[in-house]
Computed example of a mutant assay.
Amino acid sequence: MNSLSADAQRLRELTLLRRVKDRIDREYAQPLDVEALARGVAMSSGHLSRRFRAEYGESPYQYLMTRRIERAMTLLRRGDLSVTDVCFEVGCSSLGTFSTRFTELVGMPPSVYRDRASDAPAGLPACISKQITRPIRNREAVLPVRN
């Protein structure tokens, strides 16, 4: 019976973590912080951060920034908005923080990404473009082999 209640508790907690993840996916452009996310599922911010990282491999803040950068990449590829406009459109309030995080995840500053995206082949389906341009954290990037 104790095992059953432990399993039920874990399932409940996973459901709450999924709720947080879904909220970040939906509301990435809104001002979100870990405290607000934790309040939404009746957890402490510390517990939410630890459990979220354990289940998804990154903190809620890192996940939020990844979603924002993914959306920013799409907007920058479109080419009709400035980097500053994109920054605020995706919910970042600091151009400096946005540029730093963008560079960390994508490997180049947003202005360089925007310029290179305009040189990309036309007609590439959006689903393929999104898949091959998905940001990855530097620790996940494959380093080139040097001879």
Rank of each mutant, 00 (worst) to 15 (best):
residue 97 T to R: 07
residue 86 V to W: 01
residue 121 P to H: 03
residue 16 L to E: 14
residue 98 F to E: 06
residue 135 P to D: 04
residue 2 N to I: 14
residue 6 A to Q: 14
residue 53 R to Y: 13
residue 65 M to N: 10
residue 16 L to S: 14
residue 48 L to P: 08
residue 114 R to Q: 15
residue 70 E to C: 14
residue 117 A to I: 08
residue 115 D to P: 00
residue 103 T to I: 04
residue 123 G to D: 00
residue 92 C to A: 09
residue 135 P to W: 03
residue 99 S to A: 14
residue 40 G to P: 08
residue 15 T to H: 15
residue 121 P to I: 05
residue 47 H to W: 12
residue 131 Q to H: 06
residue 94 S to Y: 06
residue 137 R to T: 12
residue 104 E to V: 15
residue 91 G to P: 01
residue 140 E to F: 02
residue 145 V to R: 11
residue 19 R to Y: 05
residue 27 E to F: 07
residue 7 D to W: 00
residue 75 L to I: 01
residue 17 L to M: 06
residue 147 N to D: 03
residue 6 A to K: 15
residue 87 C to K: 04
residue 128 I to H: 04
residue 91 G to K: 00
residue 47 H to P: 03
residue 104 E to R: 14
residue 2 N to F: 10
residue 102 F to N: 08
residue 78 R to D: 08
residue 144 P to F: 05
residue 56 Y to F: 15
residue 65 M to W: 08
residue 9 Q to R: 15
residue 34 V to E: 13
residue 51 R to H: 11
residue 80 D to H: 12
residue 94 S to G: 02
residue 101 R to P: 00
residue 74 T to S: 07
residue 18 R to P: 10
residue 103 T to A: 09
residue 42 A to M: 00
residue 88 F to H: 12
residue 72 A to V: 08
residue 54 A to H: 12
residue 17 L to H: 02
residue 66 T to K: 13
residue 40 G to C: 03
residue 33 D to E: 04
residue 128 I to N: 00
residue 138 N to F: 13
residue 95 L to R: 14
residue 92 C to M: 10
residue 137 R to P: 07
residue 109 P to G: 11
residue 123 G to V: 01
residue 128 I to L: 06
residue 18 R to S: 12
residue 71 R to E: 15
residue 27 E to C: 13
residue 137 R to A: 12
residue 22 D to K: 14
residue 43 M to D: 00
residue 128 I to V: 10
residue 86 V to A: 00
residue 76 L to T: 04
residue 92 C to S: 07
residue 49 S to E: 14
residue 3 S to K: 07
residue 98 F to I: 11
residue 38 A to C: 09
residue 145 V to I: 12
residue 81 L to N: 07
residue 55 E to Q: 15
residue 65 M to I: 09
residue 144 P to A: 08
residue 11 L to E: 07
residue 25 D to T: 07
residue 32 L to W: 14
residue 81 L to T: 05
residue 65 M to G: 04
residue 77 R to H: 11
residue 95 L to S: 09
residue 68 R to K: 15
residue 81 L to D: 04
residue 100 T to R: 14
residue 91 G to M: 03
residue 18 R to K: 13
residue 57 G to M: 04
residue 117 A to V: 07
residue 140 E to G: 08
residue 115 D to W: 00
residue 67 R to D: 01
residue 141 A to H: 13
residue 106 V to A: 11
residue 53 R to C: 11
residue 11 L to M: 02
residue 19 R to K: 13
residue 147 N to M: 01
residue 88 F to P: 00
residue 146 R to K: 03
residue 43 M to V: 01
residue 57 G to D: 07
residue 44 S to K: 15
residue 52 F to K: 15
residue 131 Q to P: 02
residue 110 P to R: 01
residue 46 G to P: 04
residue 63 Y to K: 04
residue 93 S to V: 10
residue 107 G to L: 05
residue 134 R to D: 10
residue 138 N to I: 13
residue 32 L to P: 11
residue 27 E to H: 12
residue 138 N to L: 12
residue 68 R to H: 07
residue 46 G to M: 08
residue 101 R to T: 08
residue 117 A to Q: 06
residue 40 G to E: 10
residue 125 P to Y: 01
residue 88 F to Y: 13
residue 70 E to V: 10
residue 81 L to K: 04
